Simulated assay, not measured.
Amino acid sequence: MNEKLNPTTASGRRLGYARVSTDAQDESLQIAALDRAGIDALYVDHGVSGTATSRPRFDALLTDLREGDTVVVYSLSRLSRGTKHLIELGDTFEARGIDLVSTTEQIDTSTAMGRFMFTMLAALAQMERDLLAERTRAGLEVARAQGRFGGRPEKLTMDQRRHAQLLRNGGVRAEEIAASLGCSRATVYRALQEKGVSA
């Protein structure tokens, strides 16, 4: 357990951020965790995908931040649009003298161990993305060689849906995702819209 997650050790304000991808999702779990972490203010984006360029309440949080403040999130996945964005945010926060706490990953960048864990998680996430891209390229080559460019099966497993979402987050086109999974574009679009799949 990282002792610096205790809110009494913070020198500035603790600003919480929560996000749900659809209006139907409930942010109460995130908010309860943030409340336990001891926050001074809360910013919540409703129905906003993690890949969205504009997130009104997150943008407001960034504007309100001052040196010495701490951003508190339930999970790093709620914070960024992807690995590259997460690393950029980490660099921006460090340059501005702002700490980051994630209650799920037990990360607190005000500590040496927290900064190390943040860097390691970001690197692992980047590696996962790169490996997925490599597998996609290999799958596309096989699909083209066999003359496959989509089609059945219409339903994807949870792993396939997560695979599709991760690829989409990495900027891969729906047509390429469909070819790698051996399904239609429509199936990919449906999988990306299903509750619990969007990042």
Rank of each mutant, 00 (worst) to 15 (best):
Thr136Ile: 15
Ile39Gly: 11
Arg19Ser: 06
Val73Lys: 09
Gln106Ile: 02
Ala112Phe: 01
Tyr74Ser: 13
His85Ala: 08
Gly196Lys: 02
Leu34Asp: 09
Ala122Leu: 04
Ser198His: 01
Leu86His: 00
Asp69Lys: 14
Gln25Tyr: 05
Arg66Glu: 13
Gly170Pro: 03
Asp130Ile: 05
Thr51Pro: 07
Gly47Ile: 08
Ala145Glu: 14
Asp159Met: 08
Thr53Glu: 08
Gly114Trp: 01
Thr119Leu: 11
Thr157Gly: 14
Asp130Met: 04
Leu86Met: 02
Val142Ser: 13
Arg81Glu: 10
Ser75Tyr: 09
Glu176Ser: 01
Arg161Thr: 08
Ser198Asp: 01
Gln106Glu: 06
Asp26Ser: 10
Ala125Lys: 00
His85Cys: 06
Met127His: 11
Tyr17Leu: 00
Thr51Ile: 13
Thr83Phe: 02
Pro7Tyr: 04
Asp99His: 07
Ala33Gly: 05
Arg36Asn: 07
Arg129Ser: 15
Gly82His: 03
Arg81Thr: 14
Thr104Trp: 08
Phe116Tyr: 08
Asp35Ser: 11
Arg96Phe: 12
Ala33Phe: 03
Thr63Leu: 06
Leu100Phe: 06
Ile107Asp: 11
Thr9Gln: 02
Gln193Gly: 13
Phe118Met: 02
Arg162Glu: 05
Phe58Asn: 00
Gly150Met: 12
Arg78Pro: 03
Ala123Asp: 07
His85Gln: 06
Ile39Ala: 12
Arg135Pro: 05
Thr109Gln: 02
Thr111Tyr: 00
Arg129Cys: 11
Arg13Lys: 12
Ile31His: 14
Ala179Tyr: 06
Arg185Glu: 15
Gln25His: 04
Met113Asn: 10
Ala179Val: 06
Val20Met: 02
Glu154Phe: 07
Thr83Leu: 01
Ala32Gly: 05
Gly150Phe: 12
Gln126Arg: 11
Ala174His: 01
Arg135Met: 14
Thr136Ser: 15
Phe118Asp: 00
Gly170Phe: 01
Gln165Lys: 10
Leu131Ala: 09
Val71Thr: 11
Ala123His: 04
Arg55Ser: 09
Ala178Ile: 14
Glu27Cys: 12
Met117Thr: 09
Gly171Trp: 05
Gln160Pro: 03
Gly97His: 08
Gly139Glu: 11
Thr157Pro: 04
Arg135His: 14
Glu194Ser: 15
Gln146Cys: 12
Leu86Phe: 00
Ala95Trp: 04
Ala179Lys: 02
Ala33Thr: 07
Leu100Trp: 04
Leu5Lys: 01
Asp108Gln: 01
Arg162Cys: 04
Thr53Ile: 06
Ala33Arg: 09
Gln160Thr: 05
Ser198Gln: 05
Ser180His: 02
Ser180Gly: 03
Asp108Ser: 02
Leu79Glu: 00
Asp130Gly: 05
Met1Asn: 10
Asp45Tyr: 03
Gln146Ile: 08
Glu154Trp: 09
Phe149Ile: 08
Ala138Glu: 15
Arg144Val: 13
Ala125Thr: 03
Lys84Met: 00
Ala164Leu: 07
Thr119Val: 12
Met127Thr: 10
Gly147His: 09
Val71Phe: 08
Asp91Gly: 13
Asp108Pro: 01
Arg57Pro: 02
Leu166Gly: 06
Ile98His: 01
Gly171Asp: 04
Gly16Asp: 03
Met1Gln: 12
Arg190Gly: 02
Ala52Asp: 12
Thr109Ile: 08
Ala179Asn: 06
Cys183His: 09
Ala191Asn: 12
Arg152Trp: 10
Ile98Asn: 03
Ala145Ser: 15
Ala32Arg: 04
Ala123Cys: 06
Thr8Val: 13
Val20Thr: 07
Tyr17Cys: 00
Asp108His: 00
Asp40Ile: 14
